[in-house]
């Protein structure tokens, strides 16, 4: 197992690349999820605020 990980000396170049790729790809998805949640929360707060002012925007067809 160790020998396979070592890849006779080249492992220290190959593994960082794969790990970095994994981190970058997962980080992108995770940030997107976080942003989505916070946007929904903000929209909810705005909706409550709007209801309080009872002024709801009419939806006009696109």
């Amino acid at each position: 197992m160790i020998e396979w990980l070592n890849m006779d000396g080249d492992g220290i170049y190959v593994w960082p690349c794969y790990v970095l790729t994994l981190i970058v790809l997962i980080a992108n998805v995770w940030v997107a999820k976080l942003q989505h949640a916070s946007l929904l929360k903000r929209a909810a707060a705005r909706a409550r605020h709007n209801d309080a002012r009872t002024e709801v925007l009419e939806e006009i067809s696109p």
Partner: peptide, 15 residues
Amino acid sequence: LLRESRKRWVQELVQ
């Protein structure tokens, strides 16, 4: 969501 946060469909979606 960022662009349409004012629209009604977003508020319905959220509520």
